[in-house]
Amino acid sequence: MTARLELILGAVFAAVLIAIGLSLGDKAVIDVLMRLSIFSLLALSLNILVGYTGLVSFGHAMFFGFGAYVFGLLMQTNAISIPAAAAVTLLATCVWGAVSGALCIRLTEIYFSFLTLAFQMLLYSVIAGWVSLTGGDQGLMGGIPRPPFLGIDLAQPRQLFVLTVIVSVLSALAIRQIVQSPFGYALRMIRDNAERARFLGVPVQRYKLQAFVLSGIFGSLAGILMSLYVSGAYPNFAFWTLSGDAIIMIVLGGITVFLGPVLGAVLFQFLNDYINRITEHHGMVMGVVLLVIVLGLRKGVLDVLDEWRQSRKPRPEAAP
């Protein structure tokens, strides 16, 4: 598919979503679509690392939380417009992503995963502990001001909904461009065999770092949208359970197909909300459903994963 065609498809998709949301005029539908947009973006951003670079991050929610808190705190100063605050937040995310990423990408496999977890929990401890700034476990209180800009008033739920969908779809298209670019193919090469990539002249570490930062930026953007949506920010946004949720989303949907994480996010949110609505024993039902999907539909999800795994170097246990 050409980039132009993708752009058109993306625009059509966004238009359809917005049309559905606005024409039904139902707050519940708008709520559902907004959350799906935000979590789809979170899952897509994580998949730059997991699916395309082969780096399983256990700490991706740190960017989500970082974005939500930095943006929320900036807005609460009442001295800055929404686009400016978002730009500053994304810039700050770049710095944080570069610093933490430079350290994390020195490791591989499960050690990388645990280091990302450690960084995330460090950030979480700061958020939870710095009560005078962040409100600690109560989150950012008093609401997040949403002054109008360029004729857009995000205090209107409908306008916020339209903006959320547009930003999410544009971000998805941008991520698509990134993974389809030569850079994206270099990432796949690193994922499949880092040694060979290095041998072929790919600057492996630099590319990994760039992927880490890019993934963080989009994760942070999802966090910004979330803070606008809930008009606040909570420590949970940076907690490891949300990282776990994001991983579950991409595994459910599939990590090798570009839209897999989107479908995973939809499936996960649907399961979460629907099961919680129908039964108090949502833990048991959700657990069984997850088991059935992971173990039962192995052929659907795991076949693809298998291909990916086989193309990597064999595990040490399997070596003679």
């Binding site: 679509l33 599939g254 479908l263 939809v266 649907f270």
Partner: peptide, 24 residues
């Protein structure tokens, strides 16, 4: 694989659509 995956995706898509309807 690709075909079976598309099938799965379509199913999840339908589930998602159902979610929208049920949530209303």
């Amino acid at each position: 694989t690709a075909i079976s995956r598309t099938g799965l995706n379509r199913r999840t898509l339908m589930a998602g659509a159902a979610a929208g309807v049920l949530a209303a």
